[in-house]
Design a protein around this nucleic acid. Structure first.
Length: 186
DNA sequence: ACGATGATGAAC
DNA sequence: TTCATCATCGTA
């Protein structure tokens, strides 16, 4: 079997260790990975194209900055679990918990190939708070796969996070990472 | 530019 | 128990 063929067929479910790092390190590496959804017999995979990092207690844009509560408890738990919450009374937001157990951090998945916007994404894939706290590292209902796509640094656009103007200095951190289609060829 | 729509956290 | 706020989106 050729090397190329092996790469093309590579399908590795991301493990807990992948997520056991600071969110700003994990987030850009999720670009090019595949969000995989199984509903009954059908399975769909979507390449991740837009993410945001929320890191630690001090990040005022993060829900964790208010401390551990019923909602945010999962952020304080082990890495590699889903954190799904409702915002504006109608949109479910999909996050993966990162960092060591006890350290609150997560990456918000804001977009995948063909679906722009965190609310649209969860609606299209049928993701709700029912997924909250479930592992993102088991190939059951919803998980993330490495399918061999490698993203070069010049294809990643860094910007401040969206919708966090209330967060003071933290609003300026360049912790939103977008896969830039126009720079995908060199 | 604005309203929808309900959970959350903090104040009372 | 009430209140302001919210990691957004569709319609105007």
């Amino acid at each position: 079997m050729s090397n190329t063929r092996m790469l093309m067929e590579m399908r590795t479910v991301l493990e807990k260790e992948f997520f056991e790092r600071p969110a700003p390190a994990v987030a850009p590496e999720l670009l090019g990975m595949y969000l995989v959804r199984r509903s009954g017999a059908t399975e769909h995979a979507y390449m991740i194209t837009e993410v945001e990092a929320y890191e630690g207690y001090d990040d005022r844009a993060s829900h964790a900055s208010k401390g551990k509560t019923a909602r945010t408890a999962v952020m304080f738990g082990p890495p590699g679990r889903w954190y799904v919450y409702l915002v504006y009374g109608m949109h479910e937001m999909l996050n993966v918990v990162t960092g060591a157990d006890g350290h609150p951090a997560a990456v918000l998945i804001r977009g995948v190939e063909g679906i722009e916007g965190p609310g649209r994404l969860t609606k299209r894939l049928g993701i709700t708070r029912a997924e909250n706290t479930l592992p993102a590292t088991k190939a059951t209902g919803l998980w993330i796969e490495d399918r061999g796509v490698r993203i070069a640094p010049h294809q990643i656009q860094k910007t401040p996070r969206i919708g966090v103007a209330y967060a003071g200095e933290w609003a300026h951190k360049p912790w939103r990472f977008v896969l830039d289609k126009s720079s995908s060829r060199r």
